[in-house]
Measured scan of single mutants.
Amino acid sequence: RSRTNFTLEQLNELERLFDETHYPDAFMREELSQRLGLSEARVQVWFQNRRAKCRK
Rank of each mutant, 00 (worst) to 15 (best):
E30S: 15
P24L: 04
E13S: 09
L14E: 01
Q10T: 02
Y23V: 06
F18T: 00
E40V: 10
R55S: 13
R51I: 06
F18K: 01
A52Q: 10
S2Y: 08
A41T: 14
Q10W: 02
L36Q: 06
A41H: 12
T7I: 03
R16W: 07
Y23M: 07
L17H: 07
M28Y: 04
V43A: 00
N5E: 14
V43Q: 01
E40C: 09
E13P: 00
C54P: 11
R16M: 04
Q10I: 02
E30N: 11
T7C: 05
K56G: 15
T21H: 11
L36I: 09
N49L: 10
Q10H: 06
R51L: 08
R3P: 13
Q44V: 04
R51K: 06
F6I: 08
R55T: 08
E9S: 07
F47G: 04
R51D: 03
R3M: 13
A26G: 09
D19V: 10
S2N: 11
S2V: 09
D25T: 11
P24A: 02
A41N: 04
L17P: 02
T21F: 07
N12I: 07
Y23G: 07
R50G: 01
A52E: 12
T4D: 15
A41P: 08
L14V: 00
V43P: 00
E30I: 13
F18N: 01
R42Y: 06
E9M: 06
D25F: 01
N5G: 08
A52N: 13
R51P: 02
E31N: 14
E20P: 00
T7A: 03
T4M: 13
S2T: 11
L14H: 00
T7P: 03
E31S: 11
L32P: 00
S39H: 06
E9P: 07
C54H: 14
F27G: 14
H22T: 11
V45E: 15
L11S: 12
Q44A: 10
T7H: 03
Q34H: 07
R29I: 11
V45M: 11
Y23F: 14
Q44P: 01
S39R: 04
F27T: 14
K56H: 10
N12H: 09
N12W: 07
Q34E: 09
A52P: 02
L17M: 09
E13F: 05
N49E: 12
A26M: 11
R55E: 15
D19I: 13
W46Y: 02
T4S: 12
Y23I: 04
W46S: 01
R55L: 09
E13R: 03
L32G: 02
K56S: 12
F27L: 15
M28G: 04
D19R: 15
L17F: 15
A26V: 09
S39D: 13
R42G: 10
A41G: 10
R55P: 10
A52K: 10
E40D: 12
F18V: 01
R50T: 12
L17E: 06
N12Q: 13
V43C: 05
N12D: 07
L36H: 04
E9L: 05
R3D: 15
R16I: 05
D25Q: 10
L11T: 12
V43I: 10
F6C: 05
E20R: 14
L11I: 11
E15G: 03
Q10F: 01
V43G: 01
